[in-house]
Structure formats: structure tokens, C-alpha cells
Amino acid sequence: MSHAIHHHLGISTNEVPFSRPTTPGAHPPQIGFVGLGAMGYVMSRNIANYRANHPGGFVPLLVWNRSVSKAEKLQKELGEDKIRIAQDLGQIATECDIIITNLASDDVVKNVYQQFQEALLKNKPTKNKIFVETSTVYPTLAGELDALISSVPHCHLITSPVFGPPAAADKAQLIIVLSGDYRSKKEVAYLLVPAVGRKVYDLGGNLEKACTFKLIGNSMIMGMLEVMAESFTMAEKSGVGAETAYNLIKDMMPAPPLVNYGNRMLHDHFDGSEGFAIDGGIKDATHVRRLTNEHNSPMPLIDIVHQHMLTARALQENNKREGVQQFDTLDWSAMIAGARVAAGMDGFNSQTHPRVQKLD
């Protein structure tokens, strides 16, 4: 049946590198989701909608978020038949069979898993539980989380960071990376594809590998954005025009991240509430720089990315003090502000730059 569903949705079973899980038992699994930020909100929504129409049965998704208003918004959008709101993290840990977390920082992730452990040691499970950590964290944190979770009987952790912006999550087009226990990965892969993602990379049993690969992938994206930011700035300064440079991207390198973030740079659309917040980008760049030190593998472009995102955030903080900021939170495409300022231009407002005169 799972094969038929994937085929109907246009997803090759080769995109999920595991055989189909065994037929589920009499009761469908209770799934919990923690963290309803820009990514978590749409991921949890897609899981709830997909499971509600899945022939294996469905119970409402149990969700928790630090600010309950987001959980209430999700419940209002989908209905109480698809979403239940947990009172605390202990309820998520004890009631759910599969717990998915998507959180903003390493410190928050660790704190949440400490609360999971505390609740489960008081009420030890009698059947298997799978914890699925989808945040972007430093690889060594995976071992700390595993120590917390594996101290509880029948509990397994897998790391499962995802590639793609909220817009890709909204369309269930994320790329999912998995590391950890094989049987757990098998269950989770068929839960997440095609509900939230289109393909799974299996990186084996070492929990750190998926986290490492996520940082490597993000370094590729950050590097491409930096090159694009510098090229757009040079195009403006030289009189060619950033729009001409952007058109070349669309014609020769039309990768979705380049087209999306290039459009943001071109039109100064730096609203982080609709994209990837720059604080997250700075955190990821910091992790990558730490990784380069640990493995003696220099990535000098990421050093520049880090500097330019810090520059953008500093400009934003100054604008806030003066009450002239345009956005509450910057998207990481605002790193172009660093290249612009270095070239003597306005960081956030391209309308102040000399305009290219188009010939008839």
C-alpha cells in the first residue's frame, strides 16, 4: 500500500532508501511535534494532513510550542480532529510513540531533551519510542542527546536535519537526512516521505553524520549566496546592473535557492519572518567555522559569510535604535548588506544606488 501511495504522488520508492516497514499494529502511532517555528509549523501541518488521509489510521498530532499561540493557530487551521495541544513536554514524551523536534538553537534542543528524559525516567515506557531531531545543531550535541535518550528503556534517537526553506516545507519538498538506528530510520522515512519531504539520504548509524552533512550543505548555500551578493554589488557599481546579473542566474543556474534568494537581494526583500532568519544563519556559519577548525579543513568563504551577516545584523540593530528598521527580523539573504557597505553603498536600500540607464 505504501508503494502505491508513493507512486500515486509521483515519488519514486528509490527516494526512500529502506524497504517498507512491517504492517502497523491495531493502533496507529501517536506522533508528537515540538517547535512550531517557520519550519516546524508547516512540517507539522503537512504530517497531520497526510496522516489523516493515510490508510493506516490516524490519531490527532500532539504538538507543543513555547508560545502556545502558535499551537492554537495550528489547531484552529486544521481542527481538533487533527491537532491536540500538549500541556507540557512531559506529556509529549510519555504519550507519543514518535516525537519530532524542530528548534532554533543547540541550547534549546538540549534543554528540551533533558525535560524528555526527566519525564520518562519518572514514567518509564513499556514499548519503543523514536525521537527525531530535525534541527540544525553541532554534531557533538547528537551524542549528548543520545546519552539522555538511551538512558531510558525502549527509547531511540535518530538525527534527521532537513534541507529546504519554509516554502519548500510548505510544498512537502524537503530533502531529509537520517542517521541512527536502522529500524527507527525505516519507520521515520516512511512517515516523512511524502508527507514533508521528497527524498531521504541515509548516512548510516553514526548520529553525528547527518548533523555534519547538514552543516556542509548549508555551507554550500551560504557560499553561493555570498558569491551572488558580491556579484550583484559589482554589477551595480560597474553600471551593468544587479537585475542583469540576476537574469544570468535564472538563465544559466536556475537552482531554486539561487533564484529565490537572488530575488530577495535584488528587491531588498529581507523579511526574516518569511525566510530563514539571519540569527540562524550566523549560528550555522559559527558551527561550520568550528567544524573547519576541528577537521583542519579551511573554508575561507564561510569566514566572509559570517562577517557579512554580522555586518547586516549590526546595521539592523542600529536601525532599530533609530526606529527606522523595515523588518523585525532579517532574512539571511541580507548578507548582501555587508558587500554593499564595503563598496560604499547603502546596505538595505538598493533604490539609493545609481540606476543603470537602459539604452533603446
Rank of each mutant, 00 (worst) to 15 (best):
A4R: 08
H7L: 14
L9M: 13
I11K: 05
S12G: 15
N14Y: 12
V16L: 13
V16T: 13
F18D: 06
S19P: 07
R20A: 15
R20T: 15
T22R: 12
G25V: 04
P28A: 06
G32H: 09
A38G: 01
M39G: 08
V42E: 02
N49P: 00
R51I: 00
H54S: 15
P60D: 05
V63Y: 04
R66L: 13
S67L: 09
V68F: 03
K76H: 15
D81N: 13
R84K: 15
R84L: 13
I85F: 01
A86S: 14
Q87E: 11
D88Y: 02
D88C: 10
E95S: 14
S105Y: 02
K110P: 03
L120I: 10
I130H: 04
E144N: 13
L148H: 12
T159F: 05
S160K: 02
V177N: 00
G180H: 06
S184H: 05
K185Y: 00
K186M: 11
L191Y: 01
V196E: 03
R198S: 15
V200Y: 01
T212C: 14
K214L: 06
K214A: 14
I216V: 15
S219E: 09
M220R: 05
G223I: 03
M224G: 15
V227E: 03
V227A: 15
M228R: 01
A229P: 09
E230R: 12
M234G: 02
G239M: 06
A242M: 11
T244L: 13
M253V: 14
M253R: 10
V259G: 06
R264D: 09
S273E: 08
E274V: 10
G275R: 01
G275H: 10
F276R: 00
I282V: 14
T286F: 00
T286G: 13
N296Y: 13
P298F: 06
I304G: 02
V305N: 11
H308A: 00
M309S: 04
A312N: 07
A312F: 05
L315T: 12
Q316D: 04
K320T: 08
E322D: 14
Q326L: 11
M335A: 09
A337C: 13
G338I: 04
V341A: 00
G347P: 03
N349C: 04
Q351E: 15
Q357M: 10
D360E: 10
